[in-house]
């Protein structure tokens, strides 16, 4: 259980987000230390996905500050495209480019953003696909892959850029149950390699086994945070207790 270090990789402070009249995030603070895996749980509509999307500015916070790897993401002088290379993101719906092969998906940003030549990008891309166990699927189109394989290609696409932190937005929610395991396995290996990760998910078993800290969010605020054993077995807050007992009964 690593407590937040002196210089966290992610430091989000007093994040507020309004969608019109809707106040989705109500002053959220989040620090993630290097090599830490932070797991975010909470009922749907609690703002956990929005918080995650604020961490790479896919969502523009209404106020607050987000600093990732020393870069102030909300500073207008920040080159956001440069900064985003250091922040990998994996989506619930995979979002692979359907008109490109698995390798093409992984190498696009390597060539266009990181400025690698085709041969070099292909080599890095192949290595990334090998890390997620799909070296033999490089030439396949996304539609020829199972959901689990597509999500692993999406993970390869993110890690090929050698990010400092990876954001996972419900990475297994769109998968058939028998395909969830392969994706969690890749995430576990990523975690063991020392990747800093922020995971929004309902996979409580994975959280118990792999998370350093679990955050419980409700109504746009972090209600409670702590090591998984504490949050799952002995939550301090009534709302956390209610939520935990609800998912335990599933």
């Amino acid at each position: 259980m690593t407590p937040p270090a002196a210089t966290p990789i992610v430091r989000a402070t007093a994040i507020h987000k309004h969608f019109g009249a809707l106040h989705v995030l109500k002053g959220v603070d989040l620090e993630v230390a290097e090599r830490e895996l932070v797991f975010v749980i909470g009922p749907s509509g609690s703002g956990k996905s929005t918080l995650l999307r604020c961490l790479n500015r896919l969502e523009e916070p209404s106020s607050g500050s987000v600093v990732v790897d020393g870069i102030d993401l909300l500073d207008p002088r920040t080159d956001i495209n440069h900064a985003r290379q250091r922040i990998g993101m994996v989506f619930q719906s995979f979002n692979l480019y359907p008109h490109m092969t698995a390798l093409g998906n992984v190498t696009l940003a390597l060539r266009k953003v990181a400025g690698r030549g085709r041969a070099e990008a292909d080599a890095i891309g192949q290595a990334a696909l090998a890390r997620v166990g799909l070296a033999d699927r490089a030439g396949h189109m996304p539609a020829q892959l199972s959901g689990g394989q597509q999500q692993r290609v999406a993970i390869a696409r993110a890690i090929a850029l050698e990010p400092r932190v990876m954001l996972f937005d419900e990475p297994t929610s769109a998968l058939d149950p028998e395909l969830v395991g392969s994706v969690l396995q890749v995430m576990r290996e990523l975690r063991e390699s020392g990747m800093t990760m922020v995971v929004v998910s309902h996979e409580m078993g994975f959280a118990r086994a792999a998370a350093d800290r679990v955050l419980f969010m409700d109504e746009g605020m972090i209600v409670e945070a702590g090591p998984p054993a504490q949050i799952f077995a002995a939550p301090a807050q009534e709302r956390t207790r209610a939520f935990i007992s609800q998912i335990k009964h599933h």
Partner: peptide, 12 residues
């Protein structure tokens, strides 16, 4: 999601 995936990898 196609926009978001591409932008999240740093594409302009």
């Amino acid at each position: 999601g196609q926009w978001e995936a591409a932008r999240s990898t740093g594409l302009s």
